[in-house]
Every structure is written in structure tokens, then in C-alpha cells.
Nucleic acid binder design. Structure first.
Length: 107
DNA sequence: CGGGCGGCCAGGA
DNA sequence: TTCCTGGCCGCCC
């Protein structure tokens, strides 16, 4: 994975404010790499916990938490709630309400 | 709403 | 080099 790509993505990741969420595709675009959503996922998946980065503030395009059923998914749901984010009955986030940056999620 | 399909792009085998 | 596989995405039924 190219260092420039990683740095750009992590920078965008750190810029997501508490209480907001972004998506893999949006983060990739913000970082300057449109269409690289999958790679953002691959990167977030192997982030060392020590870095304490807000990986949990990234969800799929439909506001869905990735890899449902997995242990990490439950943890992510918990962290999002602690962040003050409401999840609907199906565990999805309303991007029109919490999406970051706002301009990317206009109704 | 649910499921399939094709497209996306980098790594590993 | 080809082939397969992803914490994805959007379109079509």
C-alpha cells in the first residue's frame, strides 16, 4: 500500500469530528483517490489499536456497518453510540444527519 | 427491502 | 503474468 495513500487517508480519517461519520468511498475521495473505497477498508482493517484513530467513524455507503455479525461490528456499534450517534433498528447510520463532510451527503 | 452482477484496484499466490 | 480475493459501490430487477 503506497505510503502517500495511507497518509492521505489517515489524515482524512483524523479530520472526522466526534459525532459524525464518513464512508469508505468518501474518505478515499477526500484523500484524493476516488474509486479506492476497498483499499480504505483494507487499510482501516489493519490499523494498530495503539494509534487510537477513529476507524469506527467509517461505514459503508448506505450507512451500514461493515462485516455485520463480526465481533468488531458490535464493538463499532457501541463506540458510535458512545459518540452520540443514533443507529436505526437495523443498525444503520443516517448519513444525511451524521455524514461527514456534510456537503457529500446532501438530501 | 433483498439479491445478483459488473466494475473497481492493489496484494498475494 | 494471470487469477483470486477483499471492512466497497451503484445499478437493475
Amino acid at each position: 500500500m503506497a505510503p502517500e495513500f495511507e497518509h492521505a487517508v489517515l489524515r482524512a480519517l483524523r479530520d472526522i469530528p466526534p459525532g459524525r461519520v464518513s464512508t469508505y468511498g468518501t474518505l478515499a475521495a477526500l484523500a484524493g483517490y476516488p474509486r479506492h473505497a476497498r483499499h480504505v477498508g483494507a487499510l482501516l482493517g489493519r490499523l494498530p489499536a495503539e494509534l487510537a484513530l477513529p476507524w469506527f467513524r467509517v461505514v459503508g455507503s448506505g450507512g451500514r456497518i461493515a462485516r455485520p455479525g463480526s465481533e468488531g461490528a458490535d464493538y463499532q456499534r457501541l463506540l458510535l453510540q458512545q459518540d452520540g450517534i443514533e443507529l436505526d433498528s437495523k443498525g444503520r447510520v443516517d448519513l444525511f444527519r451524521y455524514g461527514w463532510p456534510p456537503a457529500y451527503f446532501l438530501r
